[in-house]
């Protein structure tokens, strides 16, 4: 699904990512750990194709398309979606209309989707205007549900979220990534699952999200380099005990 080959990225003239090799398969959930400033968000921004993230070497492939120099909207149309950590407010653009824009040509029942993320009351509000931490997350998820991407980039889905919201957000992320939680319309779960091949690339600091989703694989990004492929749980346990000291040793 996604392949990054020997990727070097500069931001504001400074090299942030230094030779990233990463492969995410169809339906796989990949967790990215790393201390502040290690380049995690830059990796996501580069994948989405934002201005200011200059690929100086290497390639990015998505389902056999070389997307290295593709503009963000084309990547989005190919099926890459992103949940922003601090999305901007757009005055005068109602959340409802934003969700409709995300859906593109697909027909979606906005009311239904909003109900799922407990957002019905907020549909008439300008997008992100005065949203709380939990509301931002739920609005991002609502937009992604309408957009229905095949690869979703999550930038710290648990930041600024209280415990009550965390359960809801965790459950929704799971259903987006792993498909519907219940069989419906006479279709078996097995069939539903095989149709559902959404992959996730998730940045987490706290690891709370691991309580909710099936995380297949994790890695640590440290000073622009990837290291320590392991089960996400194990990485988290290690980091919470020893911090990122080991990464220094490992990478040198």
């Amino acid at each position: 699904m996604l392949k990054m080959e020997d990727l070097y990225v500069k931001v504001g003239g400074k090299e942030i990512l230094k030779g990233i090799n990463l492969h995410i398969s169809d339906g796989e959930n990949y967790i990215l750990f790393g201390p502040n400033g290690s380049g995690k968000t830059s990796l996501l921004m580069t994948l989405m194709g934002f201005d200011g993230y200059e690929v100086v070497q290497g390639r990015i492939y998505y389902n056999d398309h070389d997307i290295t120099s593709m503009p963000a909207y084309e990547r989005a149309r190919l099926g890459i979606g992103m949940s922003f950590q601090r999305p901007p407010t757009i005055h005068g653009l109602k959340t409802r209309d934003m969700v409709r824009l995300c859906a593109g040509d697909r027909k979606v029942d906005i009311e239904d989707l909003a109900k799922e993320v407990n957002f019905s009351e907020l549909l008439e509000r300008d997008i992100n205007a005065g949203f709380s931490g939990g509301e931002i997350k739920r609005s991002e998820l609502l937009q992604l549900m309408a957009q229905d991407p095949s690869l979703i980039l999550f930038d710290e889905p648990e930041s600024g979220v209280d415990l009550e919201n965390m359960a809801l957000i965790g459950r929704i992320i799971k259903s987006i990534l792993d498909g519907p939680l219940e069989p419906r319309n006479g279709v078996s779960m097995k069939e539903l699952k095989s149709r559902h091949q959404t992959s996730g690339l998730i940045i987490t600091h706290t690891g709370y999200i691991l309580d909710y989703i099936n995380a297949d694989r994790g890695q640590v990004l440290y000073e622009g380099k990837l290291c320590c492929t392991a089960r996400p749980r194990d990485i988290l346990d290690h980091i919470s005990k020893y911090g990122y000291k080991e990464c220094v040793r490992c990478l040198n």
Partner: peptide
């Protein structure tokens, strides 16, 4: 860029923001 990440090209994004404005 926020809107472009949702699949709108630059012109569509600009026009959406101007409408909202």
């Amino acid at each position: 860029e926020y809107l472009m990440a949702r699949g709108l090209d630059e012109e569509e994004a600009t026009s959406t923001i101007v409408r909202g404005f």
